[in-house]
């Protein structure tokens, strides 16, 4: 009872990366709160799914296995999670800020009247003193996220409602197997007790899942462009540099919104989170929402016409100047010296 709970997303028999990352975070939160880590897997043919989930330090894994439960559908998955939460009363519930988690999370929070914070970049345990009620709350989940165009960082709490729910984007937390031989209990759920036939009203006619061809997340070097790059034509220079260095091209939200690059390249709180060896930020001012997705890069080069750009504060190299002038020079001197 009152444990930490993680909803595991399953795609073609594999636990999603984001869920593995949340299991790792969930384990450390459970240790701090001195409680258990529980998880749920909902889908079909899940006989061996425990081997993927328990090693993260999961004490109890609930499995809802039924041919109608894969692929994900809103109503049946909501019913299962809501009814299980009513029984197990978790204090914290974590989900991926993914297509599935952002569909399921709000639905579950509404059904249980519990608070949900989207796209958290940090989760910390802490206390809270409510002056109005003269009441102290111990061991709350601080749900920390940038807000309002990245100008502020908000710490959100749910003092009275449980579970305290949060979604987190893929790549924000680190995944780490705790113990391949971890001893956890598996509970096979009687699906019919948790879900009604009326929940299956959606007919899935067609489904094309494909991994994005662009692999910005895994690239060791990222050349990222912002609104300051100025045009789609100038963005081509970034591709040239990325190709020469063996990297990928990323973009800020402003660049994506301006049509300079596709959504799959967006880096930041509402895009992907990256930790490359080298991050070259071109014409990116560096709002907190962007930095949330790249500030753990090992080395950062910032190229900007504005010497006061916020990105400069976290850069190892600050170059004040025009992207169109500097990138060709970088390519030239890389080629000259790399042999």
């Amino acid at each position: 009872m009152n444990n930490v709970f993680v909803y595991c997303e399953i795609e073609e028999g594999h636990v999603a990366d984001v869920s593995q990352e949340l299991l790792t975070k969930g384990r450390s939160l459970a240790n701090e709160l001195n409680c258990k880590l529980e998880a749920i897997a909902v889908g079909h043919n899940l006989d061996s799914i425990g081997e993927q989930i328990i090693p993260y330090g999961v004490d109890t894994l609930y499995i809802a296995d039924d041919s109608r439960l894969y692929p994900y559908q809103t109503l049946p998955h909501t019913s299962i999670v809501v009814n299980l939460f009513k029984e197990t009363k978790p204090q914290i519930a974590l989900m991926g800020a993914s297509s599935i988690g952002r569909d399921l999370g709000p639905r579950v929070s509404s059904a249980l009247h519990s608070g949900l914070t989207a796209d958290c970049t940090s989760l910390v345990i802490g206390d809270h003193f409510d002056k109005k009620q003269d009441k102290n709350y111990e061991n709350l989940l601080y749900q920390i996220r940038p807000a309002f165009g990245g100008n502020i960082i908000a710490t959100i709490i749910n003092p009275d409602c449980r579970p305290q729910m949060a979604t987190v984007r893929e790549g924000v937390m680190k995944k780490e197997v705790l113990d391949p031989k971890y001893k956890g209990k598996i509970v096979k759920m009687d699906v019919a007790k948790y879900v009604n036939d009326e929940d299956f009203v959606v007919e899935i006619i067609e489904r094309h899942m494909e991994q994005s061809k662009v692999n910005v997340k895994g690239a060791p070097i990222i050349v990222a462009g912002g609104y300051g790059v100025g045009s789609k034509e100038n963005f081509k220079l970034l591709y040239d540099l990325a190709e020469v260095l063996g990297g990928e091209v990323g973009a800020s939200r402003a660049a994506v919104d301006s049509g300079y690059a596709g959504h799959e390249r967006q880096i930041g709180q509402t895009g992907i989170t990256v930790r490359p060896k080298l991050y070259i930020a071109c014409g990116i001012s560096g709002q907190i929402q962007h930095r949330a997705g790249m500030e753990e890069s090992a080395q950062i080069i910032a190229i900007n016409t504005d010497p006061e750009a916020p990105i400069n504060a976290i850069a190892d190299y600050v170059i004040t100047g025009d992207v169109a002038e500097i990138i060709p020079k970088m390519i030239k001197y890389y080629k000259k010296n790399s042999k």
């Binding site: 519990s114 749900q143 100008n151 709490i157 749910n158 190299y317």
Partner: peptide
Amino acid sequence: PTKVKSIENVVLQAKDSK
């Protein structure tokens, strides 16, 4: 159910940049 505990204005810690 959710309350804003605190809001921090974003202050950047300057790194040792070249």
